[in-house]
Simulated assay, not measured.
Amino acid sequence: MPRTYQDRWIECTAEALRIRGYYFPWGTKRIPYARIRSVRRVAMSALTGRGRIWGTANPLYWASLDPQRPAKSIGLILDIGWGVRPFITPDDPDAVVSVIREHTGLSAAGEADKYGPIL
């Protein structure tokens, strides 16, 4: 049976990734694993995610709600094949990448050696 993951804002179920606090005011985004084309690990700085609790200044990405994001250093960008790419910051990024890989067959995401986009 594939593994699952859950923290306050991110949940990996058997069928999909669920991102709480994605839509205003508290809506949940559900992304079936079949839609996930890639997962990119990024190191965060003040302008590349760490200073953004929710939303974006870049129309290509959307940072889900995470009041603890300023204390985190790694984010994940999901390519779902079209439109806006979700930017998430799970408490355990390695566990989320591992669960997504199990469900999708994607190759391993490398170390977060690149900074993410300006958010």
Results as ranks from 00 to 15, higher is better:
S38K: 01
K72Y: 01
N58Q: 07
M1T: 13
L60S: 11
W54V: 00
A112M: 12
A46N: 13
W62M: 03
A95C: 10
H103T: 07
P70T: 13
I10D: 15
E111M: 04
P25H: 02
S45I: 09
L76P: 07
L65Q: 05
D92G: 01
P90L: 01
R69V: 07
Q6Y: 04
L106T: 03
G83S: 08
Y22E: 07
P67S: 11
G81C: 12
P59K: 12
T48P: 04
R40L: 04
R30T: 15
T4Q: 15
Y61S: 00
R20A: 15
E11R: 15
F24G: 02
S107N: 02
A95T: 11
T28I: 13
T13W: 02
L119H: 12
S64A: 15
L78M: 09
A63W: 10
I80F: 02
A43I: 12
A14S: 13
R40D: 10
R101D: 04
L119S: 11
R37D: 01
I19R: 05
P67A: 10
L17N: 06
A16D: 05
V96E: 01
L119M: 14
D113P: 01
G51P: 02
D7N: 11
G75H: 09
W9L: 05
R40A: 10
K29E: 13
R69C: 02
K72E: 00
P25W: 01
D92W: 06
Y61C: 03
G55P: 02
I36W: 00
I100D: 09
A109Q: 09
P93C: 10
N58R: 06
R40M: 08
E102T: 06
P93T: 11
M1C: 12
W9Y: 14
T104C: 03
A63T: 12
G21C: 04
K114C: 12
I77K: 04
S98I: 03
V97Y: 07
G27F: 01
Y22G: 04
E11K: 15
A57K: 00
V42H: 08
H103K: 11
D94Y: 11
L65G: 05
H103W: 11
R52C: 15
W62G: 06
Y61W: 12
I88A: 14
F24E: 00
A71H: 02
T48A: 05
V96H: 01
R37H: 08
G81F: 12
N58T: 04
D66L: 08
L60T: 11
V42A: 07
A16S: 13
T4G: 14
Y33N: 03
N58L: 05
Y5T: 01
V42Q: 06
G105E: 02
A57N: 00
S45L: 09
G110V: 00
E111W: 09
E111S: 08
G49L: 09
V84G: 05
I36S: 03
R50P: 09
T28S: 10
L106K: 05
R50C: 09
R3Q: 15
D7F: 14
W26E: 10
T4I: 15
F24R: 00
P25M: 04
A95M: 11
G51K: 05
T13G: 08
R35V: 01
R37F: 01
A46Q: 14
G83R: 10
G49S: 10
R35G: 00
